[in-house]
Amino acid sequence: MREKKKKMSVKMMMKREWPFYVMLLPSLILMAVFAYLPMAGIVMAFQDFVPSGGIRGFFTSRWVGLDHFKYIFGLADFRTVLGNTLIIAVAKIIAGILVPLVLALLLNEIRNVVFKKLTQTLVYIPYFLSWVILGGILIDVLSPTGGILNRALGAFGMEPVYFLGNPDTIRPVLVISDVWKGCGYNMVIFLAALTGIDQSQYEAAKVDGAGYIQQMLHITLPGILPQVVLVTVLGLGNILNAGFDQVFNLYSPIVYEKADIIDTFVYRLGMVNLQYSISTAVGLFKSVISFVLITTSFGLAKKFANYRIF
């Protein structure tokens, strides 16, 4: 009896909500065509893929099992490259959350609307420039022969530093320039979250005698915590994407040992011999790691911050 009732309710629900499902259908189809079907391409990671006309290649290519993975992990440089990727990516993720957070909190305290908007726009602008352009600008700015930064250092009597050619300075350059370029984006997310905080909480806190710092710690930060968690979780998915465009435009053989990341390494490897299979294997490896990390962080966010993204 009870079961029948439940079935009825689903039926009734469908009757009531079917237009929504119809509206959802196109995006589901698109998702299936562009996200699910191509996933069949994963088989290339386990094949010695030789194209022979569309999907026929999947059936005619030779199966090699885990050979490609063994080959990649067996390369002497791969451990260095993996380490570089992790270090650079983690530093970028952390700095990429902290800096915009502080900026957003500071901007939020500013009452001059014109100044606030202007700053917000100026900080956001680099986000829209490509690394090809910014790379050229950075190479000029950081140049040891007449770059603006080294001239400034020279004014204080310091020897010029070849920032992009020194293994000790390349990682900080990568992280700082990435944060400089990208921090506007997260800052806008945090600013938006800040406007969503109920103003009456601040009023109540003031009545209770809370200062700026206390208001910030007890109202502002908890208020935007969900967004911070969201940005972190999404960021973790990128842990193996240390930024191909950026690194490719700024590195050189002299700093390979500290700045070569998985993507640039595979790019150089695959340049000569259309290595479809190897790049698929690397892509699969990266995706699996990202998947695990996203799932874990999603669980952690739920457990510790009691926050659900989905």
């Binding site: 191509p38 194209p51 999907i55 699969l284 995706s287 998947f291």
Partner: peptide, 10 residues
Amino acid sequence: MITGMCACGS
């Protein structure tokens, strides 16, 4: 995300 890198081939 998984698909990202392997979208070629089909």
